[in-house]
């Protein structure tokens, strides 16, 4: 089963105080470390697991600059066979534009299955995957937490709300957006990633793709980015752990528990 996985490199923002630039339309990310998008690492792992089980080849694709090749190399080190980067020249993009660019490249890669993450850690949009599926004419399902291949079909377990899953049968070729927790992404060492640079990594310039101006203009635009308002919040209990513990037990008892 030949698989294409779409990956994105995003800033690592745990405990970071994000800074908004002066135009108030962008987040200052240059000084931040970058990692593979959490959802995408599950998608890559799933692709490799399917490859290990069923054979075939895995291609990893990203849209971005040379720095973004890092996540492609990670995918290669995890077991992908080749990678493609589409140089976007730093132009502003949104999910629709990215999907369009990806579609024009993936259209020429013969494959049975396309996997993407549900959404990205930075913009949290969840747009690229399904849009890409539609442009490629693939059947699709979003928020998938389990995959089984059954003949010419794929059976996807979709995570709905409230602890209920939907089992859906899709005909291949298909596109699935992968939810976290579907597997446990394997670790690849620093050396493992360096060695992966021996595998094929092709670079295509977006200008070579023959997309129209219209396709490359984002239909949505951010007018302003701002911090959430500080709306009171919790009453912080301070002091020695023993003092705090007494206070908490008191609160719990007054509410009728821990009696």
């Amino acid at each position: 089963m030949d698989i294409v996985v779409c990956v994105k490199r995003v800033p690592f923002t745990q405990e970071v105080d994000l800074e908004i630039d002066r135009s108030k339309r962008f987040v200052a990310t240059e000084s931040l470390a970058h990692v593979i998008n959490d959802w995408d690492s599950y998608a890559v792992e799933e692709a490799i697991l399917l490859k290990e089980k069923l054979g075939g080849e895995v291609t990893a694709v990203t849209v971005g600059s040379e720095d973004d090749e890092e996540v492609l190399r990670r995918a290669l080190a995890m077991g992908a066979d080749r990678a493609v980067r589409i140089e976007s020249g730093g132009m502003p993009m949104d999910g629709t534009v990215v999907a369009g660019i990806l579609a024009s490249v993936i259209r020429n890669i013969p494959c049975d299955l396309v996997l993407t993450g549900v959404q990205a850690d930075d913009d949290n949009q969840a747009v690229v995957g399904v849009t890409l599926a539609e442009l490629l004419g693939l059947s699709h399902a979003a928020v998938v937490r389990g995959i089984e291949v059954s003949g010419a079909d794929i059976v996807a377990r979709i995570e709905l709300e409230g602890g209920v899953d939907e089992i859906r049968r899709l005909r291949l070729p298909a596109l699935l957006t992968i939810q976290t927790g579907i597997n446990e992404p394997r670790y690849v060492s620093v050396m493992g990633i360096r060695k992966a640079s021996k595998k094929e990594l092709k670079v295509i310039d977006v200008k070579e793709l023959g997309l129209s101006q219209n396709d490359l203009v984002p239909p949505t635009e951010i007018e302003e980015i701002y911090l959430p308002a500080d709306t009171g919040g919790a009453e912080m209990l301070k002091g020695d752990p023993s003092v705090v513990a007494e206070a908490v037990i008191d609160i719990m008892r007054r509410k009728g528990v821990a009696l």
Binding site: T96, T131, H140, A142, L160, T177
Partner: peptide, 22 residues
């Protein structure tokens, strides 16, 4: 919702209407 995330981008792609999610 998971269904909405499946449906809305599909509608947007087919109609060309702009989409803002979540």
């Amino acid at each position: 919702t998971p269904w909405g995330m499946d449906l809305a981008p599909a509608i947007a792609a087919k109609t060309g209407l702009p989409l803002s999610t979540d």
